[in-house]
């Protein structure tokens, strides 16, 4: 079976500085894959490279076997890859309902339509309502996104990310800044919502990573030093060194 995401020999340079070098990563269909690594290792850059936010200097990225490196973010999104952001990145002046609905519109085929009343599209309404139920924000549907609590905004962020029905979902530190209880809630939410999809997640909270991921890749200085099941990663001496080395600073 073709991998959901295949990253081959990707390099990203800013001027003379190599942020990412010889990045190779393979994520199977339906897998929950976590990317971990010390601060500044290039985890978010990796996300940006895969989702089209920035273009690789060299190398290629494939989504379900098709080359997507060099495509623009919305072209990649239309092929079934959706991502969230580390810093909440929603439509602040629009309501919760409208945020999710906007994320549903392209996938339901309404595109740039200016001849349809957006309130009279049953499938859009149903899908939006379902997503709101899923992220437990139905009671907040008419609140502008900018006025939500932090945890609610993070949940909305996840809702907007999955609303289009993407088959590959990438979440960038979804539980950052959350309390312990909020984190648990978010993890069960993520587990439920990404059922049957491929999940790529960047996370600092190791309990989340080891509880959620099928496979883990460890990124250090823009290079993947190890990739494997949680058990393999736990035992890997290179990983221990990288993390211990960081703590020794």
């Amino acid at each position: 079976m073709t991998a959901a995401i295949e990253v081959r020999a990707v390099e990203k340079r800013f001027g003379n500085v190599s942020i990412i070098r010889d990045l190779n990563l393979s994520i199977a269909q339906g897998e929950r894959h976590a990317i971990i690594g010390p601060n500044g290792a290039g985890k978010s850059t990796t996300f940006n490279l895969i989702s089209g936010h920035i273009k690789p200097t060299s190398g290629e990225v494939r989504l379900n076997g098709d080359v997507i490196s060099g495509l623009r973010p919305f072209e990649i999104n239309r092929r079934g890859l959706s991502r969230s952001f580390q810093v909440t990145n929603v439509f602040a002046r629009m309501t919760v309902w409208e945020n999710v609905r906007c994320a549903v519109l392209w996938a339901t085929g309404h595109r740039y339509a200016f001849w349809k009343n957006v309130d009279h599209l049953p499938e859009v309404r149903e899908q939006t309502a379902r997503i709101l139920e899923d992220i437990h924000l139905t009671h907040r549907r008419d609140v502008p996104a900018g006025l939500l609590t932090y945890a609610e905004q993070r949940e909305l962020e996840i809702g907007v990310t999955i609303a289009g029905g993407a088959t590959v979902v990438m979440l960038d530190e979804p539980t950052a800044g959350m309390s312990h209880a909020e984190t648990e809630r978010a993890v069960s939410l993520i587990r439920r919502l990404t059922e049957g999809r491929t999940l790529v997640i960047v996370e600092h909270d190791m309990s989340v990573v080891f509880g959620l991921a099928d496979r883990i890749s460890v990124l250090v200085y823009g290079h993947i030093i190890a990739s494997g099941t949680p058990e393999e990663i736990r035992r890997d001496p290179k990983v221990k060194e990288a993390y211990l080395g960081e703590e020794a600073h």
Binding site: G52, F74, N77, S82, M94, L105, W106, V160, G164
Partner: peptide, 16 residues
Amino acid sequence: NAVRDNPERVQFIGYD
């Protein structure tokens, strides 16, 4: 409206 609020994010829900 979404483009007004956040043109960057719009790209990640399929719109140019």
